[in-house]
Design a protein around this nucleic acid. Structure first.
Length: 424
DNA sequence: TCTGGGGTCCTAGGACCC
DNA sequence: TCTGGGGTCCTAGGACCC
């Protein structure tokens, strides 16, 4: 019988910060979202202080200071690199690893030597020793049950970071203990509806009739039900999967009112999205552009809009994409508003090779030989750092850039910021 | 002053076709 | 008064995930 492990890094971003600042061990640490907007990661000490996930920073800033909490802006260069290190260790232990998110991975633990739990404890110890990141492992017959076991392990100190539901003497007790809203796949909407019907925990949900669940919660709800019963419905995907859409968007550091600034930001986000596109060796047939004012500020005039621009020929050529994106932005931009955010989304993605070519004439400025130019730009930026080569359309001063006032050094990816150790 | 960013899947309904 | 039936494709919106 199959056995899945879910390995989840504990308080991942906070743990990354602490890995390089050991004096912060035992102290409350929080990490803020982009633009220093709100709290998105907390060490266990910070959780105990009652600092909630998603709290806007400006609302808790003084309290955090008073409590002596170490506050960091998010540092994705660091987290992404630490994540890659953790995943690499996992793949030494398990041939089949599905990287589910920056801080989580599923492993197929069927038939590992010495039993799943003992094996998981070795994995856990190795990751901690080699990266400084503590992880928790949950083991179950399906991914949904592995998730559930993981959550149980986190909440039960006795498990010391590993819980194997398949070896539990009373697995139903664990399901009864799990709140319906904490089941993977059941979000706040469905949880509320289910609670109103007296379905308050995973065990009660598991006993519902499948036809009823499918009718009320579509096949995705049915999959959750069956997974809780031990029948795998969610595929296991080892290795990277190509994205079907690619988004790049940011909130601005200050409200933007000028079209030229908006166009710069649009060009910059398009550049980012196109880089991601080329990294997975795809081309896009469509680019969507959007902007929005600050919808938290109800007193101010609000405006948001989106526009979709089909590309005559699917492409990953940054200048072509920038041109389309700017055309779109010019179409939806209205003067007289304070904008908070804009973004682009690439969709209609296809593999770059074997792509369908338009029978119509190639559009102006689209030369079939743009691939070498983009390859060269990507190569330089990979070798010498992001934006070593950038497009003039993105502007130079970039007044709209996001705030990141408390970012830690990029210890592992930028030479100038590497950790220095002084010998006594 | 100040509230993140990036994804997936599913369904209903409209447009369009024969 | 009466107004087919079936199919495909696309999009918007909802729900969920981290």
């Amino acid at each position: 019988m199959a056995s899945y492990g879910l390995i989840d890094c504990n308080n991942f971003y906070a743990s990354c910060e602490r890995a390089f600042r050991p004096e912060l061990n035992g102290r409350p640490v929080v990490v803020l979202s982009n633009n220093d907007g709100c709290v998105i990661a907390r060490s266990s000490e910070a959780k105990e202080l009652g600092i909630d996930m998603g709290t806007p920073y400006y609302k808790c800033r003084s309290r955090l200071k008073r409590l002596g909490v170490a506050v960091f802006s998010s540092n994705y260069a660091l987290y992404g690199d630490m994540s890659a290190r953790v995943m690499q260790i996992l793949s030494r232990f398990c041939p089949a690893v599905e990287v589910y998110s920056i801080d989580e991975a599923f492993c197929d633990l069927s038939g590992v030597p010495g039993g799943a739990e003992a094996y998981a404890r070795r994995v856990r110890a190795t990751v901690l020793a080699w990266t400084g990141i503590p992880v928790t492992v949950g083991i179950g017959r399906t991914k949904t049950l592995a998730k559930l076991a993981n959550r149980f392990a986190k909440k039960q100190p006795r498990s010391r970071g590993v819980f194997d539901l398949t070896a539990s003497p009373d697995p139903d007790r664990v399901l009864r203990w799990t709140d319906i809203g904490d089941v993977w796949g059941i979000g706040p909407r469905h949880a509320k509806r289910l609670r109103a019907l007296g379905v308050t925990d995973a065990l009660t949900f598991r006993e519902l009739k499948r036809d009823w669940v499918q009718k009320k919660m579509t096949v995705t709800g049915l999959h959750t039900l069956l997974e809780l019963r031990g029948f795998p419905c969610l595929g296991f995907q080892a290795g990277p999967v190509d994205k079907k859409s690619i988004v790049s968007s940011r909130s601005f550091g200050h409200p933007v009112t000028r079209l030229d600034h908006m166009l710069e930001a649009t060009a910059q986000y398009t550049t980012r999205a196109a880089e991601k596109l080329r990294r997975q060796k795809s081309v896009a047939a469509n680019i969507m552009v959007y902007l929005q004012t600050n919808n938290f500020r109800l007193g101010q005039p609000q405006y948001s809009n989106t526009v979709s621009i089909p590309l005559p020929v699917a492409t990953s050529h940054t200048p072509t994409l920038i041109r389309a994106a700017k055309t779109g932005m010019e179409r939806i931009f209205r003067h007289g508003y304070e904008y908070k955010k804009c973004g682009v989304m690439l969709s209609g993605l296809e593999p770059e090779h074997g792509r369908w070519l338009s029978l119509l004439a190639l559009p102006p400025n689209h030369r079939p030989d743009d691939a070498p130019l983009m390859r060269a730009v990507d190569h330089v930026n990979h070798r010498w750092g992001r934006d070593t080569l950038s497009f003039a359309a993105s502007g130079i001063t970039r007044d709209w850039r996001m705030k990141r006032e408390m970012r830690s050094p990029r210890y592992t990816t930028v030479w100038e910021e590497i950790l220095t150790v002084l010998a006594k």
